[in-house]
Design a protein around this nucleic acid. Structure first.
Length: 660
DNA sequence: GTTAGGG
DNA sequence: CCCTAAC
């Protein structure tokens, strides 16, 4: 197969896929691995096979309607019984910022329409030169490539007759998207099923391809998309470079017709393996990042930094951007904050979806404990709706990188203070709220979470203080938007993540970074600690983006009184002292706040009562404000205590105190 | 880190 | 309340 694959390479400028030593796979792989590697099995085949099962599952489980006619694919051995399946393979397009990279990577391009279907094997697939539309579904054939890049396969049950587009809408699509490394697939497939899969797979794959082709290929909407991006571990220099440039993957709906440019991307529906427990695991690996999109996503881009084998982290800076757009919104929205996603459909559909796991591996572990593990971040979200997702990864960032996530609730940022969180239904113990990407490996995950995963989301403004319930805002370091006021745990939200991490080449592929396509699990508040902190660097972390205005907390009369009293005593200009004296326990009142309040009090006292707004301040207090203000104005505050005698009015006693 | 002011 | 220059 290899040779064949290479043929395709030529299409890309003659680059050959670098021979990459296979990175050690995860343990589990090792279990079953033998057949996979040695075998000629095409990854796709495997995928196809898996897909078949997934479909079955999805069918059973999937509530979604719309699957009318289904192709039937019979897979004899692997346990996928003949069930009607319609599998679709959607091509993802990978864009490499660095064109050169593309060349290196092995891809098979197919014109979406025609070519694929004819031949079962990927290798056979003709290359497509065109970059133009979605039509060009490009499939990465190279095993290596797959490994590194990870493949998304999307399986959809479709009605052949109607064509995917017509019949199935987002909802219909199988939700499961998985990124699979080829290796993983093999492993999974093999493990769960049997080696025989190969043959079957072939069929499946073929069918899959076909159906997609027939239907015009890509559906307009994808129910969900996972995109793993990270570069794989493969040490090969070439590869690294490629990734190093940013890799973007764009997915667009047919409607759009145009993919973004000349990018090669492969889009596929992800599917799960059915193996009992196994299929979950299938989840994947990919990488560094991965996300799901709701069905409506139209455009999806990811850029993935690939870490260099040697030094993944540093010099290779890469930015990864993951974006999802809704058709309508995409343009308008800011990338970074995508909170707005407003589409209802999307939301609804997407809502159910969740991302359970993200695994990220860092090339060299920043983590002390275990390199591999350290990188991992567990990220769980419940009810995850992402209209648009933007991820940026700084080149400099380490694998563990920063994760910046913000949550918007009702258009407002949710701060991570306790009050806000509680209101939101999220409780935090600490100032920061973190997300962790959990390695697919069960065992690892926990350990990582607690110990290894250091990723923390720094909160910009974290003061946690009790705040009025008014508008919950949480700053996490990144912004998430919650669309609705979340009922406790389930929040609909959009998440933006900025993560700086570099994927580790080696490990990545091997280890699994698996993302569970669907399950986002809300992180228990308790685990906050678990949230690892990742240093956020960049400006992004800055409050400008993240922080939101603090919730407004009007001063109560008693607070005003305390303030006045303190100012009478201390004067104006010693706000820190005032704070300590009168508001030491009020964490939410900073000395700047007190200073500002005094300013407003002075102003308030100087205007007519009719002009005043808000909770009325007793006139007597206002009188004291004016008196103290006048007094201290003349006295330069602190310094002149001694002149008190000169001072006019009230503050006499105060002065005395001060002096003393 | 505080102050002082403008926004 | 935020932001910031100036200390």
């Amino acid at each position: 197969m290899v040779s064949k694959k290479r043929l395709y390479y030529g299409g890309f400028g003659g680059f050959r896929a670098p021979v990459v030593p296979k990175a050690p796979r995860s343990l589990r792989r090792s279990l079953h691995k033998k057949s996979s590697e040695g075998s000629d099995i095409c990854p796709f085949e495997l995928l196809a096979a898996v897909a078949g099962k997934l479909l079955q599952e999805s069918e059973s489980s999937a509530s979604s309607t719309g699957l009318e006619g289904k192709e039937q694919v019979s897979i004899s051995k692997d346990g996928v019984k003949q069930e009607p399946l319609d599998v679709k393979l959607k091509p993802l397009r990978l864009e490499y910022l660095d064109q050169g990279c593309c060349a290196e990577s092995e891809f098979v391009h197919e014109h979406s329409n025609s070519e694929l279907k004819k031949e079962p094997l990927l290798t056979d697939l003709p290359q497509s030169d065109n970059d133009s539309g979605l039509e060009h579904a490009s499939v990465v054939t190279t095993s290596d490539f797959l490994k590194e890049v990870g493949t998304n396969v999307k399986l959809e049950a479709s009605d052949e007759k109607h064509g995917v587009n017509g019949t199935r809408n987002h909802g219909d699509l199988c939700d499961v998207n998985m990124d699979v490394n080829r290796a993983d697939l093999h492993t999974e497939a093999i493990g769960s099923q049997s080696e025989d899969l190969t043959a079957v797979k072939t069929c499946s794959f073929r069918d899959t391809v076909k159906s997609s082709v027939n239907h015009g290929v890509l559906n307009k909407s994808y129910s969900s998309v996972h995109v793993p991006f990270y570069s794989d571990p493969v040490p090969s220099a070439c590869f690294q470079k490629k990734h190093r440039g940013n890799v973007k993957i764009g997915i667009r709906d047919d409607d759009e017709n145009s993919f973004s440019c000349n990018h090669h991307s492969t889009k596929m529906r992800a599917f799960r393996l059915q193996s009992r427990s196994g299929y979950r695991r299938i989840r994947k690996i990919l990488t560094a990042k991965y996300w799901k999109t709701a069905p409506k996503l139209k455009d999806y881009e990811v850029s993935n930094p690939t870490s260099g084998g040697v030094n993944p982290f540093d010099h290779n800076r890469k930015s990864t951007y993951m974006r999802k757009y809704y058709q309508a919104e995409a343009a308008s929205k800011r990338r970074k904050l995508f909170h707005h996603s407003s589409k209802p459909d999307y939301v609804q559909e997407a809502s159910s979806e969740s991302i359970s796991n993200l695994h990220e591996r860092s090339a060299s572990g920043d983590m002390k404990h275990s390199p591999a593990a350290s990188n991992r971040v567990k990220f769980s979200i419940k009810s995850f709706k992402v209209p648009e997702l933007y991820v940026e990864m700084p080149e400099t960032s380490t694998v563990g990188g920063d994760l910046h996530v913000g949550v918007l609730l009702e258009g407002k940022k949710v701060r991570d203070d306790n009050r806000t969180l509680q209101q939101t239904g999220i409780s935090l113990n600490s100032d920061t709220l973190g997300f962790m990407l959990e390695p697919s490996l069960p065992q690892a995950s926990k350990s990582l979470v607690e110990e290894e995963c250091p990723l923390l989301l720094p909160c910009d403004t974290p003061q946690s203080l009790a705040r009025s319930p008014a508008t919950p805002i949480m700053d996490l370091g990144f912004s998430n938007s919650l669309e609705d006021p979340p009922p406790a745990t389930s929040l609909d939200n959009q998440v933006e993540m900025n993560q700086e991490s570099k994927p580790l080449p080696d490990e990545v592929s091997t280890e699994e970074t698996v993302v569970d396509s669907k399950a986002l699990v809300p992180i228990p508040p308790m685990n906050v600690e678990a949230l690892s902190i990742v240093p956020v660097n960049h400006k992004q972390s800055k409050r400008s983006e993240l922080s939101q205005r603090r919730t407004r907390r009007p001063f109560s009369v008693s607070e005003v009184e305390a303030l006045v009293e303190a100012v009478e005593t201390l004067g104006t200009g010693r706000w820190r002292d005032v704070k300590i004296r009168a508001f030491d326990d009020a964490n939410h009142r900073t000395y700047v706040d007190l200073k500002d309040k005094w300013k407003t009090l002075v102003h308030t006292a100087s205007i007519s009562p009719q002009q005043r707004r808000g909770e009325p301040v007793p006139q007597d207090l206002l009188d004291r404000v004016l008196a103290a203000h006048g007094f201290w104005s003349q006295h330069q505050s602190k310094q002149h205590t001694k002149h008190q005698s000169e001072r006019v009015g009230t503050p006499v006693k105060v002065c005395l105190e001060v002096e003393s």
